[in-house]
């Protein structure tokens, strides 16, 4: 067994206790496995090795293995974490306990159901809402987003919907209707977006008995978030905005930087460059020759050239 620079053995056998659940019998139990861990071995690696070599009935969910998809959230040593971003040796304990994420219904072993969580996210309308019905239903151009405005919301758009914040929240723990940190953080993200005009519509969900007011800034969501989204900050900013509105502050400024689809039309992208071949007949001659050359091997290219020829000669 080799030794690390810091004098600790490079590999170590770690005891892994998994909280398992069988939906057919309703049985819930702890099961122990032993896995050899070295620097870099993640909890997800260990679980996959257990599944491959020791117990193929162990069920978990994962996809990207690199902290991007948000599928592998678990309760690891009582802390909600991404299994693929947590290294066994970093945890520093000889026994590592792994449980399904709390506050989500357990489907089997470590797999939880995100239905409610996603529904709450959908409830706050996580997309650009415009006042004009036509713009909502038949969008045909982008809206302008200046870089400094993007910087104000980009932190919230890094959310990977892993649900760690939702598992950590002490209010979600008791209130099943509470929108939760993820949805509320996203509500702030969309409400501050300069391209958006959906504040009033979103308030129906946000300014509710189980909306933003149920947050008491315990801050656990932000402490648990693996992406630095800081939902707690978004929620407080959303709430203070609402407090000001209720207290009679002037209605939110109209989004100034919004470029409506019609104005985008007038953005001057300049004229098409001048043709480099001034004498059209030279170009026509060149195209005809090329088309002939390609007739045998690439008939469809030749055809395309002839079509193009027709458009320039007819104009």
């Amino acid at each position: 067994m080799g030794v690390n620079g810091n004098g600790r053995p490079a590999t170590r056998v770690v005891k892994i206790r998994v909280r398992r659940y069988d939906p057919e019998t309703g049985r819930r139990w702890w099961q122990e496995y032993r896995v050899e861990a070295k620097k870099g071995t993640t909890v997800l690696d260990a679980l996959l090795r257990i599944k491959a070599e020791q117990d193929h009935t162990l069920a978990m969910r994962y996809s990207c293995r690199m902290g991007a998809c948000g599928s592998c959230g678990m309760l690891i040593n009582k802390m909600p974490r991404l299994a693929c971003e947590t290294q066994l040796l970093d945890l520093g304990t000889d026994t590592v306990t792994i449980e399904p994420l709390p506050n989500f219904p357990v489907l089997r072993d470590l797999i939880t159901d995100f239905g409610d969580f996603f529904k709450k996210h959908r409830d706050i309308m996580p997309y650009i809402v415009r006042e004009s019905k036509k713009e909502n239903e038949e969008p045909y151009r982008e809206y302008y987003m200046p870089p400094d405005e993007l910087n104000k919301i980009i932190r919230f758009s890094y959310c990977i919907m892993c649900g760690l914040c939702y598992a950590a929240c002490p209010v979600v723990a008791i209130d099943k209707k509470f929108l939760g940190p993820q949805a509320l953080g996203q509500a702030y993200r969309w409400v501050t977006d300069v391209r958006d005009e959906g504040l009033r519509l979103r308030l129906e969900k946000v300014d509710d008995k189980h909306g933003v007011w149920r947050c008491h800034f315990a801050g656990s969501c932000s402490a648990a978030c693996p992406k630095g989204v800081d939902p707690a900050q978004g929620i407080q900013l959303l709430r203070s905005k609402l407090v000001a509105l209720t207290a009679g502050a002037r209605r939110e400024k109209k989004p100034t930087h919004v470029a409506t689809p019609t104005t985008v039309r007038y953005v001057d992208v300049g004229d098409a460059p001048k043709p480099t071949v001034e004498d059209k007949s030279l170009l026509v001659k060149h195209l005809e020759e090329t088309a002939q050359e390609l007739e045998q091997d690439l008939p469809y290219v030749a055809q395309a050239l002839r079509d193009y020829l027709r458009t320039i000669t007819s104009s």
């Binding site: 057919e24 819930r28 994420l101 357990v106």
Partner: peptide, 13 residues
Amino acid sequence: PRFLENRLGIAGN
């Protein structure tokens, strides 16, 4: 199959 409601409840609050 029966799914397990796994809220932490008052203790978690």
